[in-house]
Computed example of a mutant assay.
Amino acid sequence: MLTTSTIGLLIVDIQGKLARLVEGSEALIANTARLVQGAQALGLPVIWLEQNPDKLGATLSELQPLQASSPVLAKFSFGALGEPQVAAVLAQSGVKHWLVCGIEAHICVYQSVLGLLDSGASVSLVTDAVSSRDPANRTLAIGQLAARGAALTSVEMCLYELMGDCRHPAFRQILSLVR
């Protein structure tokens, strides 16, 4: 069961031209925005990653306003934990369970999730907020990550699980996000 006291959100590399080329780009962007806003309403730590931003570009402009109160960390290794600064920030966060979304599912998301699992963290892959250019690679990555111990969830599923009750103070705000 997901609980707000031990969970955080990691957004992997939704940046530059590539974010517009992945399958279902518009849905990915919209679902990521809903997920981030829901995480913020629930008071979860949110960390943004950018792969080689000088070459690939920054996080998409429509998502940048959601970064205001969160760390945005550059990385050059495909897996988040391969970057010492990122690994240190994630370790210092106190988060034991990460919701993970981003692109590309079969490269940076895949290697980041495997690294988190290897480090002893739990991971829930938010499947409606991950994508790849080739849908077959997305499907393969999700299947492999599930087989290796990542839980699978969706934006709406994880936000409702985190609230647990319609009397939660963030219920109305989250309800407006998912409608």
Rank of each mutant, 00 (worst) to 15 (best):
S176D: 07
L60A: 01
S61N: 09
S5I: 11
M157N: 09
L21I: 02
P169Q: 13
P53I: 10
L140A: 09
S122M: 12
D134G: 01
M157T: 13
P45W: 06
L116P: 00
P65R: 05
R20G: 09
S61D: 15
S176N: 12
M163E: 13
A87G: 05
F76S: 14
S132K: 12
G43V: 08
C166R: 15
Q92C: 01
M1W: 03
G24W: 12
D134R: 12
L42T: 07
S69P: 00
T3L: 13
S154D: 06
S77L: 00
H97P: 07
Y160C: 09
L145R: 13
T127S: 14
L90M: 04
S132N: 06
P84V: 01
M1V: 09
L10A: 10
V12P: 04
R133K: 14
I7V: 15
G102M: 02
E104D: 06
A41L: 09
Y160H: 14
L177D: 01
S69V: 03
E62R: 11
I7Y: 03
V109L: 03
A147S: 15
I107Y: 02
D13K: 10
A146S: 14
A80K: 12
L10G: 08
I14E: 05
F78E: 02
A150T: 08
A105E: 09
G38Q: 13
E104I: 07
Q92L: 00
R133M: 06
I14K: 06
Y160V: 04
G82L: 07
E83K: 02
Q37W: 00
P169W: 10
V86S: 12
K75E: 06
T4C: 14
P65N: 04
S154C: 08
I142S: 11
D134F: 05
Y110V: 04
L175G: 07
G164T: 08
N31Y: 09
L66K: 05
L177H: 04
Q37H: 06
P65G: 04
S131P: 01
V72M: 07
Q51V: 06
A170Y: 06
D165Y: 10
S122H: 14
F171I: 06
A87V: 03
L114P: 03
G149W: 06
S176R: 10
S25K: 07
S93M: 00
A141M: 13
L125E: 03
A91P: 00
P135F: 06
P71G: 04
L175A: 15
G43D: 05
M1D: 04
S176V: 00
D13C: 08
P53S: 08
D165M: 05
A27R: 15
L73S: 07
Q37T: 13
E156M: 01
L90E: 01
W98I: 02
V123Q: 01
L114F: 03
I174L: 11
S5R: 15
A146T: 08
A91D: 09
D54K: 15
L35C: 02
L81N: 09
Q92H: 10
G102T: 02
I29T: 12
L10I: 07
T4K: 14
A74E: 07
L145N: 11
A58D: 12
V72I: 11
R138N: 02
Y110T: 02
G8T: 03
Q92R: 14
I14V: 15
M1C: 02
S132V: 08
A170E: 08
S69G: 11
L60K: 00
T139Y: 10
V109N: 03
R20K: 13
K17D: 14
P169N: 12
A91Y: 00
